[in-house]
């Protein structure tokens, strides 16, 4: 499973692109996609629509397993400035609903709620929603990603840049402070993605090698394939790899007709379940 870190702005992504040694592979107007060994980076452009369409583009690219992380700046009135926060609830201002990221490990960053707005929040708005943080992409990111992956693969980490409506951005002084904890943020993202991959896969014993081997000998219907999978999941628990291969070897290499195939298949299921 690969982590894809999604930013609204190229300036927010820049320190991560450099640290993760990612190379630009796609550019379509505001959308930029960088690829690296450990992680990929997506830049969507500002706002809900840009983020949602970028997520649609991302998941349409390839079937590779992905965990997606929305990272970047946000506003916050009662939270420490220049501090990273792990987001535990994302409120959508537009529909009044919420998304709850599945945090599965203790984070080194404090938890906060996030509210996604359609326009930059001024000081008054930030005070009104505090202690929640405000951004312009998080909710769309979650909802769009939810159409493609399980909720435990959708996460957000936000850095409080200011408490006065985004004026910080013009001076450029924020960049050095923002980049200070890039290593810690990357470490959280990469280690949690590895952990998530292990958790997802520890419950799925690999039976593909046996399925392929049987498929080469007999043509299975959908129902037979499901029956076979169930029998293999059962047998995999009780039989050693070599014993399983031995059972499969007993299936004749060539089968003349459908009747013979069916009989051989039933015998195979019986042998797999014989423990």
């Amino acid at each position: 499973m690969k982590a894809v870190i999604c930013f609204a702005l190229l300036q927010e992504a820049r320190p991560f692109i450099e640290r993760a040694d990612c190379k630009l592979v796609v550019q379509k107007k505001q959308l930029h996609y960088f690829s690296g060994n450990a992680t990929d980076i997506l830049v969507s452009g500002v706002g809900n629509l840009n983020m949602a369409s970028a997520m649609g583009w991302l998941f349409g690219q390839n079937p590779e397993e992905k965990a997606v992380w929305n990272v970047g700046t946000c506003g916050g009135s009662q939270s420490a400035k220049h501090q990273w926060y792990r987001i535990i609830k994302v409120n959508g201002e537009a529909d009044g609903r919420a998304f709850f990221p599945e945090v599965i490990r203790k984070s080194i960053f404090p938890f906060r709620e996030l509210i996604t707005l359609h326009a930059p929040a001024n000081k008054m708005k930030l005070e009104q929603v505090a202690p929640a943080l405000c951004d312009m992409e998080g909710y769309a990111f979650c909802r769009a990603a939810q159409s493609f992956v399980v909720s435990s693969r959708i996460h957000l980490l936000k850095w409080v840049s200011d408490d006065d409506g985004g004026a910080f951005y013009k001076s450029g002084e924020w960049k050095a402070r923002y980049a200070e904890q890039v290593d810690a943020v990357l470490n959280e993202i990469l280690s949690e993605t590895v952990y998530l991959h292990e958790k997802e896969h520890q419950v799925s014993p690999d039976i593909s090698i046996y399925l392929e081997s049987i498929n080469r000998k007999v043509t299975l219907t959908f129902t037979q394939r499901e029956q076979l999978k169930n029998a293999l999941f059962y047998a995999r628990h009780y039989k050693q790899h070599t014993d399983l291969l031995e059972v499969i070897e007993q299936l004749p290499a060539t089968l003349a007709d459908r009747h013979q195939q069916k009989t051989a298949f039933i015998q195979l299921l019986k042998s797999l379940r014989d423990v």
């Binding site: 535990i88 609830k89 609903r97 919420a98 998304f99 709850f100 599945e102 599965i104 404090p110 938890f111 709620e113 939810q146 992956v149 399980v150 909720s151 435990s152 998530l196 958790k199 997802e200 419950v203």
Partner: peptide, 22 residues
Amino acid sequence: VIVSIRHYKDVFNQSGADWRVQ
């Protein structure tokens, strides 16, 4: 950390959950 929710089903029935990971 106490996360305030409107109704338990907002979390409990959130779509796309992976049971084992949860």
